[in-house]
Write a protein that binds this DNA or RNA. Structure first.
Length: 225
DNA sequence: TTCCAGGCAATAC
DNA sequence: GTATTGCATGGA
């Protein structure tokens, strides 16, 4: 049964990789120097509103972009004292674009950050998925990441890795929709944001270890024939 | 040099 | 409704 395997896969990944501590947050290493860190076994993040905003910014910047590049962009913003909602609202797109350049698509992303900041600023209570999805630049995965890691609301995040792993294990069809995959997890697992956070992070970790880049994979297969 | 990365919106059919 | 394309940088 598929649902049993969803549980067993979590246990196996958890045994293999241990606690993940997502979402990584910026921390001061020493005076004037910042780094990005995970926080294993600590689910008390985000600690404040700026940190919450930072997680949302990271979720937008990491769209189709490696996290390493996003870190550079986040640290640029932090050094410029602009990793907060007010600063993003006040700054012009060109200024933001220059700082987030390492994360790619900087013209689109700087506009999307400004749209998001306006919305974030007028937020009175916890957001809904539907509300987030009305924003230009926020699709399903980004909305779920913001809900799950920013607001600690159990909304399972489905990304390209999740799809690839489940498809490889024949647990889903190649062309299953986002919603179908999300429902598979959400109808199987206890509704606990900590579990959802760890599970998604573990899938990404496993994919990074196990799945090789296309070219390397082909070379690997060729070497066996 | 080519390919890829923790997607999304606009456009085309 | 589903398929394709543009967006951009840095690392392997």
């Amino acid at each position: 049964m598929v649902k049993d395997r969803i549980i067993k896969i979590y246990d196996a990944l958890s045994d293999r990789y241990g606690p993940q501590g997502w979402w990584p947050v910026i921390k001061q290493i020493k005076k004037g120097e910042f780094g990005c860190f995970y926080h294993k076994n600590d689910f008390s993040f985000p600690k404040n509103k700026d940190e919450l905003f930072e997680i949302c910014v990271g979720a937008i910047l990491t769209q189709n972009t490696s996290w390493k590049n996003v870190e550079k962009a986040l640290i640029n913003l932090k050094n410029a004292k602009m990793l907060n909602c007010d600063s993003i609202i006040k700054a012009n797109k060109e200024t933001i674009g220059e700082l987030i350049k390492p994360s790619g698509y900087y013209n689109q992303k700087s506009e999307r950050l400004k749209i998001f900041a306006e919305w974030f600023n007028s937020l009175k209570k916890d957001p809904t998925r539907e509300g987030l999805l009305t924003l230009k630049g926020i699709g399903e995965e980004t909305a779920d990441s913001i809900l799950l890691y920013g607001f600690s609301i159990p909304s399972f995040v489905v990304d390209a890795y999740t799809k690839r792993i489940l498809s490889n294990l024949s647990l889903i069809n190649e062309n299953s929709s986002y919603g179908e995959i999300q429902r598979l997890f959400e109808s199987t697992l206890p509704r606990d944001f900590r579990l959802y956070q760890e599970y998604h992070a573990l899938l990404v970790e496993h994919a990074k270890h196990f799945y090789m880049k296309k070219q390397n994979k082909e070379d690997f297969l060729l070497s066996l024939s």
